[in-house]
Amino acid sequence: MSLQAHPVGHAGPVRDPVISLRGISKSFGAVRALDAVDLDIFRGEVVAIVGDNGAGKSTLVKILAGVHPQDSGTISFDGSEVSIPSPAESRTLGLATVFQDLALCDNLDVVSNLFLGREMGGLTLDEEEMEKRSWELLQQLSAKIPSVRTAVASLSGGQRQTVAIARSLIGEPSVVILDEPTAALGVAQTAEVLNLIERLRERGLGVVLISHNMADVQAVADRVAVLRLGRNNGDFMVADVSYEDIIAAITGASDNAVTRRASAQATGSRADGGRNPEEGLRP
């Protein structure tokens, strides 16, 4: 039976997650990449998965993408247990993954990249219909692409990311997984990609965002799931958690300047009967 919870940012009745992972473990030889990881993904929600290098983020994404099978644990889709033995099965299930390398063909135009392997038409390609569908999809995402006949090699980093995300939507997925979508992008291009993530959420899709950039996470995510050394180490609502709390969960640092200050404030409040007006003025 799947765990029920309120999706962050959604009021009303309790809803089941579209994807539910329970006890997911994966080893590569003697290396334990994931150890009994749980994760829920809801429709219309952006979940950021964060963690230090080696925390298991990429392994978790590859299990959902069908690249690696889990050693143990279960994956449920809309309450029914499923297996994801291959990337094709992942796409059929309704999961679209955009890896960091984007896997675009620089020598082809936007239309050709969007429909690569899914071309429309029989013996002759229906270029007119593919171009029309390309414009419709990009307009739904408020994408800033000058022309769908522009070669991908001439696009900016943000525009290339847009094409990769738009391509993932061709199969009408329920969940889109984005692996470091803003890595190596400038400020304007990063804002463009974050706006695109907002459009995905508005369309009712579940979005999984893998990122090292806490500013991006706090700007666009509803919920943050922290992995540390292959294990769950916190699941926070972004509206209710501070930057320091997330970093402490990522690093495992429970004794630092922030926690010591909080502890001192709590101790002072108890000593003064719950009132310590000068506490907030101390450096």
Rank of each mutant, 00 (worst) to 15 (best):
A249C: 06
L125Q: 01
Q159R: 04
R149F: 13
N53M: 08
R167Q: 06
L185M: 10
W135V: 15
E198N: 13
I197T: 11
S147F: 09
T124S: 01
T92W: 10
G73Q: 01
S72P: 04
A65M: 10
G121Q: 02
G206C: 12
G274F: 00
L123T: 13
M120F: 13
G12Q: 02
E89A: 15
I24C: 02
I250T: 11
G54S: 04
H212C: 09
E129T: 06
M214F: 13
T74S: 07
T190V: 12
S269H: 09
S2Y: 06
Q159F: 10
L209A: 07
A5P: 06
V148R: 00
Q139A: 14
L185Y: 11
G268F: 03
P283R: 04
G51I: 14
S211Q: 08
E172M: 05
T182M: 03
G157N: 08
F77D: 10
S168F: 07
F236T: 10
G117C: 11
V46D: 06
G171R: 00
P87W: 03
N213A: 13
S242Q: 00
S269W: 00
G280N: 09
V238Y: 04
R149G: 10
L138Y: 11
R32K: 15
V61K: 02
L34I: 02
E180M: 08
D101I: 09
A11S: 14
V110I: 13
D216W: 11
S20L: 04
A266K: 00
A166C: 04
G9H: 05
E172H: 02
R133V: 05
A239M: 04
I145K: 00
L205G: 06
D222K: 09
A215L: 05
